Amino acid sequence: MFVTAANAQTPDAGGNTPPDGSGEDAVLHGETGAGAGHDAGFPPMNPEFFPSQILWLAITFGLFYWILKNVLVPRIGGILENRRDRIAIDVEAAERAKQEADEAHAAYEQELAEARERAHSIGQDARNDAREEGDVQRRKLEAELDARLDEARERIAAAKSGAMNGMDELATDVAETILRDVIKLDVTRDEVSSAVAATRS
């Protein structure tokens, strides 16, 4: 139908067809204008492009999932595993120090009880001398216990401090990895450490 209309030439007022094919140009121009009126507009909203958009969405999602599974998750998992091991070691050291402190306290209690028994036994024979000797022994034992307890407290405090530092380092490493690799933010380690310290306070 369009071929017939395009090949037809419109005669002029004298009944002659124009030799330059202007009638054909007019028909073609009319067809072009009519076709232009049926354009869909914005391509992403055109249903004709939905299959290709869905395909690229699936490809992009698959690539992101592969990167997340094979790059980011193993790195974060390795960091968490290393920090977990270090924290476990620090906690174990703190528990050993606490056990040693408990043993020292128990030994002190036993020695103190023995010293009191000895002082009581001696006091029956010579109360004044026994009391003085018992006080000397008690002060000596208390001084030794205080020294042991202070040493144990220092070791416990050092172990706890090491564990907390390990947790701060873990949080800093995880936050830095997420901000740099996942969110793609350019941050320094000092900024991340400051932010982690601010959350603790």
Rank of each mutant, 00 (worst) to 15 (best):
P44H: 13
G33R: 07
I156Y: 07
D135I: 03
E111R: 14
G15A: 02
E169S: 05
D39K: 13
H38T: 15
P47W: 02
L141V: 06
T188H: 02
E169F: 01
G30H: 01
P18T: 01
D125Y: 14
N82M: 03
I156H: 12
D12L: 00
A107T: 09
E144S: 09
R83C: 07
A119I: 08
L72I: 00
Q110G: 15
G23A: 08
S52L: 12
V182N: 03
H29P: 02
A152G: 09
K184D: 06
G30D: 03
K69P: 09
H29F: 02
A195K: 08
A126Q: 13
A163P: 15
E132H: 05
A159I: 01
Y65H: 10
E132S: 07
N128E: 14
A5P: 06
G37N: 08
I122Q: 02
Q99D: 06
R83D: 10
E81M: 07
A40M: 07
T172M: 05
D168W: 08
E103Y: 05
V174P: 06
R139F: 13
A143Q: 01
E132R: 13
R118F: 08
A147P: 04
R155P: 08
D102Y: 13
S22T: 07
H38W: 06
M45N: 15
I54Y: 05
D186A: 10
M1G: 12
P44I: 03
T17F: 10
I59K: 11
V27Q: 03
D39A: 05
A26P: 04
P19H: 04
G35H: 10
I122W: 14
K160M: 13
E81K: 13
A197L: 12
G134A: 05
